[in-house]
Design a protein around this nucleic acid. Structure first.
Length: 921
DNA sequence: CAGGATATCCTTTTT
DNA sequence: GGATATCCTG
């Protein structure tokens, strides 16, 4: 791989703060990963000294993979690579907290949906309904209706730089209530994880804060921040705090690609970076290797239409191998959306099989469906005509960025069940909805199914919480109707898709029940039903062919936002309508009705400006490697009847044609061949355990997404683990806890939010007993702790990685090293599965330190459970390595069969009813 | 061309 | 129910 001089400058700059301004297609990820590999060659630099932030988990996975390959290329060692943090800032902060702050071990993270459920469920206590607005018509926010806005207010107050005095006192009161409630329930929302970590790191005076600073900053020598243009003020504070100890900082970004300002991104971070940090070296990567000179020139035109003062100076230049030809770039106008959709399909058919060269040294291949991407400002509002046309013509497609789970007939049918439970519809409605959705074969006996529902409905207030578990009800209902992949009418492919939908619904139930587990039965069903109609549809995406690890050869329909970071040989940007793209400003009760806009430094970020939309258009254009068709057709009403200014901008560019001439039949065509990438498979230890137990159970749980019912004792095992983690971590710091600390430990770590009071008391007792037993039996060995909760990775080659955490690594009196796994219940697990699992741990340890452990141990904390200890054997290690690789290949081939017949794995399987009838047992 | 009346909208998405 | 774009009127 050869680099340009500026790329090399960026890679080699390891001793100064560095700003890499990377244009679209400039090989950014490659440069960053190479630089990290280079850092590892610096004498004295260990993987644990490097932290790299990305914006998404997906980007993190990609960077990790790249770094690994670069390290291998550079002949470096992959030893200990698991100690390098590559991930989002959220994940990093959570990791720091849960590594160093025992009080936070028990905290769980609220997602966007569960956070909203939480706010609505506790609307008064969370301050929602007392939060004032500046509108006479809406004196305060309303439950349900305004909870989303309230979420935004809560994050702006913490993530932005807010002029405290300009925010009304009552708004602050609401805010304080929310924060108090969040802590009381032991939750972090996304913002709070970062804020908590930042405040600890900033607090130089606090004794404990200083200890954490020493740990964190002591290890950190190099910090890399990708997508720096999208960093918000709180995240900038984190970066500041992390580099305050003098670590080297490298930020990478492109101010022209700031597209998340409505989430608080602050472009000025990147614009003024060089002034705000010491001795900054700036490297501009303006060679675009991705696109033809036509695309690059159009992209530059778009970027340069932005006001000059608001950008970093750079001139994107075409430097790749893609050739521009007249006719590649089109700006076309159509009379109707249907005509536009039809032309797009024609154009795809025309381009299919046309020779395309992926890289400078690659052989030509024929373009295939997955080489085409159609990018919309709003898929939800504009993509329907194209989807209809693609379906009509049998062209495969996947739609990204659309929450339509609840539009599907299957889920609509499932929802009727809950309408029935609250007495809104009769049994005939339910039955006919299910039959219309073709989930069950017609003529199925519905008696037992309604029996399940009757039992659920008859539950009285005061019953144990576990009894009117909605998840249980759902799974029982599917079991009663014998809904399984092999009984769903239609082809196996259809059955699989239906199962993905049903699995997602199971996830929705889990989200709801996490917050509403303890609501009284009638209220709970009612709340669930309302949530299903009003809120849930906005959060859950329909499943299409793009699921699991298999990669379909299908046209991609996506929003511009979701296409960020992607590239495609041919890109379509249709529906360039005025008031849609650029989008017009919107009305309604908004952020600034709660927080005055003067309280925020750059309020326009949250409003959206033409410049923001221009940057979005820039992102859309620069996704294309060669072919790009921008088009307009008048939309449904007069607001969208005229073309966007972007149409004019595009058509005045000299590389763009405004008329399309069909390629003649003489043009050379190759067999369509999709770009082949071997998907990366990353598994955790616990997922792998299920896979070893039964591949089909793994599929039901992790690919389809079915969740077992929430268990009332949930949290017990984690609490024990956390308590022991504190014991061992303190030991590493030289503090030895004893039996006298048991009560404290249990208080701090045992969090069982779903336990009814009597159970809770039981769990406290058994947790204390378990810890006391541990101190009795192993107290003497605690000082021999080498690692507690050690992050490990196993790289198996061929893109298969296993991630995990080893509970304990300790030295025995024999001076041997043992890898230890705690089990909190004696719940039987076949012995061979346990051994497989432990050998994977051993592999992880080997990759961490370079030699395998001597022993692997299972320590059962339960009083009856038995503990095992065995020697690590090389042949077993090799065999396990092989089995994990095989698992990765099976996953990629979507080959996850069920066992031949009912077996012992089925006996303990929570989702066995979705697999086979119990009559077979 | 200014200003009032009317029609139409109420994204985008990551953690 | 509020904000905005565009239409309409003089």
């Amino acid at each position: 791989m050869s680099y340009t001089s500026s790329q090399r400058a960026a890679i080699e700059c390891v001793d100064r703060n560095l700003q890499i301004v990377a244009c679209a297609g400039s090989g950014k990820t490659d440069v960053v990963s190479r630089r990290i590999a280079e850092l590892l060659l610096v004498p004295g630099v260990e993987p644990a000294n490097i932290v790299a932030f990305t914006f998404t988990d997906k980007a993190a996975a990609e960077l990790k993979d790249r770094v690994l390959r670069r390290v291998q290329d550079a002949g470096g060692s992959t030893l200990g690579l698991a100690e390098m943090f590559i991930g989002t800032m959220h994940a990093y902060c959570l990791d720091v907290l849960q590594r160093h702050v025992p009080e936070t071990f028990r905290y769980r993270v609220l997602s966007d949906v569960t956070n909203r459920l939480f706010i609505d469920r506790h609307s008064k206590e969370a301050g929602l309904t007392s939060c004032p607005t500046r509108l006479a018509s809406t004196p305060t926010l309303y439950r349900y209706r305004d909870s989303r806005l309230y979420q935004q207010v809560l994050s702006v107050l913490r993530e932005d730089e807010v002029d405290d005095a300009a925010v009304p006192d009552q708004v602050w009161d609401s805010f304080a209530q929310y924060i108090r409630l969040l802590g009381k329930a032991s939750y972090f929302d996304y913002t709070q994880m970062i804020l908590t970590a930042v405040e600890l790191l900033e607090d130089v005076d606090d004794e404990r804060g200083r200890a954490i600073r020493d740990h964190v900053l002591g290890a950190l020598k190099y910090l890399v921040v990708d997508e720096y243009q999208d960093v918000n003020p709180l995240q900038e504070r984190l970066i500041r705090a992390l580099t305050s100890g003098g670590s080297n900082l490298c930020v990478v970004g492109d101010d022209d690609q700031t597209i998340y300002q409505w989430r608080g991104s602050e472009v000025s971070n990147i614009l003024t970076f060089a002034q705000r940090y010491e001795g900054v070296e700036t490297v501009v990567l303006d060679d675009n290797f991705r696109s033809s000179k036509g695309v690059v020139d159009l992209g530059r035109t778009v970027a340069e239409s932005l006001p000059a003062g608001a950008r970093l100076a750079k001139t994107m230049t075409a430097a790749g191998h893609q050739q521009w030809q007249r006719g590649d770039l089109l700006a076309l106008t159509f009379d109707s959306p249907q005509a536009e959709a039809s032309w797009i399909c024609d154009r795809m058919v025309e381009l299919r099989g046309v020779p395309f060269v992926d890289g400078p040294d690659a052989a030509a291949r024929g373009l295939s469906w997955s080489d085409f991407a159609v990018l919309y400002r709003s898929v939800a509002k504009d993509a329907d005509p194209l989807v209809d046309e693609l379906r009509r013509r049998d062209i495969p497609y996947v739609v990204k960025g659309l929450n339509r789970l609840f539009h599907s007939a299957e889920i609509a049918a499932v929802v009727t069940v809950f309408a029935y439970l609250v007495g809104e519809v009769g049994s005939e409605t339910v039955q006919s909805a299910w039959e219309n959705a073709e989930i069950v074969p017609s003529g199925r006996d519905w008696k037992s199914a309604f029996g399940v529902l009757e039992t659920a409905r008859a539950i009285k207030a005061g019953a144990r919480w576990g009894v009117y578990n909605i998840q249980r009800l759902y799974l029982d209902l599917l079991a009663a109707l014998e809904v399984r992949e092999d009984t769903i009418p239609g082809t196996p492919a259809r059955a699989e898709l239906v199962f993905y939908q049903l699995g997602k619904f199971s996830q929705a139930i889990s989200d709801f029940e996490e917050i509403h587990f303890q609501s009284a039965p009638a209220a709970k069903y009612r709340a669930f039903r309302d949530w299903l109609t009003h809120q849930a549809p906005d959060y859950y995406a329909e499943s299409d062919a793009d699921v699991g690890y298999a990669q379909p050869d299908a046209v991609v329909i996506s929003t511009v936002h979701q296409a960020k970071g992607m590239q495609y040989p041919a890109v379509f940007v249709p529906c360039l309508r005025r008031n849609r793209f650029p989008s017009k400003r919107h009305g309604g009760v908004g952020l600034f009705h709660v927080i005055p806009d003067v309280a925020v430094a750059q309020p326009d970020r949250y409003r959206g400006t033409v410049e923001d939309e221009t940057r979005l258009f820039y992102v859309a254009v620069t996704r294309s490697q060669k072919y790009l068709a921008m088009s307009f057709s008048p939309g449904g009403n007069q607001l969208f009847a005229r073309p966007s200014d972007f149409m004019r901008l595009a058509s005045t560019n000299q590389h763009v044609s405004t008329k399309h001439t069909w390629l003649g039949p003489s043009i050379q065509r190759l067999a369509p061949t999709p770009r082949r990438a071997t998907p990366q498979v990353t598994l955790t230890f616990s997922e792998l355990k299920y896979f070893f137990d039964c591949p089909y159970q793994f599929k039901i749980r992790f690919l389809y997404g079915f969740n077992p019912p929430l268990h009332e004792a949930l949290g017990y095992g984690k609490g024990l683990h956390d308590a022991l983690a504190e014991v061992h971590k303190r030991a590493l710091d030289g503090v030895l806890l004893t039996t006298a600390d048991v009560e404290d430990l249990v208080d701090r770590h045992l969090h069982t939010p779903y336990a009814y009071p009597a159970l809770r008391e039981n769990l406290v007792q058994s947790a204390r007993a378990a810890l006391e037993r541990y101190f009795d039996a192993h107290g003497r060995e605690i000082p021999n702790t080498i690692h507690s909760e050690k992050q490990i990775q196993v790289h198996l080659g061929e893109g298969v990685v296993v991630d995990g955490r080893v509970d304990l690594i300790r030295r025995l009196d024999t001076d041997e090293v043992a890898v230890v796994d705690f089990k909190s219940t004696e719940r039987a697990q076949p012995e061979d599965v346990t051994r497989d699992q432990l050998h994977v741990y051993a592999l992880g340890y080997e990759e961490l330190v370079g030699e395998s452990p001597d022993l692997i141990e299972v320590l059962n904390l339960d009083d009856k459970g038995k503990s095992t200890r065995e020697e690590v054997e090389a042949p077993l290690l090799a065999a396990v390595r092989h089995r994990v690789l095989e698992a990765g290949n099976q996953l990629r081939a979507n080959d996850l069969p069920r066992h031949q017949s009912w077996c012992r794995a089925c006996d303990k399987c929570d989702v066995a009813d979705l697999c086979r009838s119990r009559r077979d047992a």
